[in-house]
Design a protein around this nucleic acid. Structure first.
Lengths: 173, 173
DNA sequence: TTGTTTTTTCAGTATTTTCCGAAATTTAGT
DNA sequence: ACTAAATTTCGGAAAATACTGAAAAAACAA
């Protein structure tokens, strides 16, 4: 291993560690964020064992989080001929990463919120007191806004990269 | 208390509870989300004691989370003359709520991410190996995208409500 | 089928986060 | 200055979450 190789490993490890810390700050677990960082910056796909080794984590932990990242569409499984192991490769295109994360967060965060708001709004619809009317109106406004944001998110994240840039330029220009 | 009053309290409590659960799913603590839900749907500002009572939580917990919501700009403190207590009132306008949350998340999530990416990119800038070059390029792409998203977020969340709607219509139309 | 490699599951443990309750501090009236 | 009301802080308890390690299951080859 050359001197430069060591430097690279050092800075990459720092990125992995920092990304892990940041993950926890936005409600993603540390290991998942670290694995994602590791594979985003790896030229070759890695096996479960290599990930375990690199991050000093257990097999169960590595396995669970690798599969979760596959569910998010941020990793894909690849195989090598004559080798029974699964290897994991990260999506590296930033626009594609953004799209996958947007879609997943919408599914997990926005859609359930909509359901709650709609149900609460409807339950309050027939009530006559001032309190209940205000509650109903507040639910309706929140629901409208969330629905709207949801549609916008769909629209933007289904754009090809080029279209998105165009739109952005108009906004920033 | 009328029959309808009871019904209203029931559905409001359900909203508060559900919003709390959702909070935990997106990395916000349950109590903070519940207090926000409670005050968003309250016609009158509430005191710390009223919040404690309504949610069955301790004074310390109520206090900490009320102040945190004030820091987020989602609640403001109001006082009544001849009363030494502080009362808390929620911002109810959905566009304003969205702006405050966007700004806070940017400050907490995006800005630190930028710092990490920039530092890692610069550390790898002089390295010559293929691995290091790929790492540098990946950091640069991520940094560019995040910076870009950050500017977009600023731009959109500083729009008045009307302008935002116009933009959205063009996107959805 | 039998043995070997790899993946998956999960009960128990460790860590992190949240919360309570009470003491300490601050604020304001008399 | 003294008292009373309200706010703030914080050590330790409780709850929620993440992780380990090992066993079970599955996949594959001989």
């Amino acid at each position: 291993m050359t001197q430069e190789g060591d430097n690279f490993k050092t800075i990459r490890d720092e990125f992995v560690a920092q990304w892990g810390v940041m993950g926890t700050q936005w409600g993603i677990n540390r290991t998942m964020a670290q694995i994602h960082a590791l594979l985003m910056t790896s030229l070759e796909p890695l096996s479960t064992d290599e990930v375990m080794e690199e991050l000093n984590i257990s097999r169960g932990n590595a396995h669970t989080n690798l599969k979760e990242l596959v569910n998010w569409g941020l990793l894909r499984i690849v195989t090598k001929k004559g080798d029974r192991k699964e290897y994991f490769e990260a999506e590296k295109d930033v626009w594609e990463i953004f799209r996958r994360i947007s879609q997943e967060r919408k599914r997990r965060e926005i859609d359930p919120a909509m359901a709650v708001l709609t149900r609460c709004k409807e339950s309050a619809a027939q009530m006559k007191s001032d309190e209940a009317k205000a509650f109903h109106d507040q639910m309706a406004e929140l629901e409208e806004f969330v629905s709207f944001a949801s549609k916008m998110s769909d629209r933007v994240s289904s754009m090809p990269h080029g279209k998105a840039i165009q739109l952005a330029m108009k906004l920033l220009g």
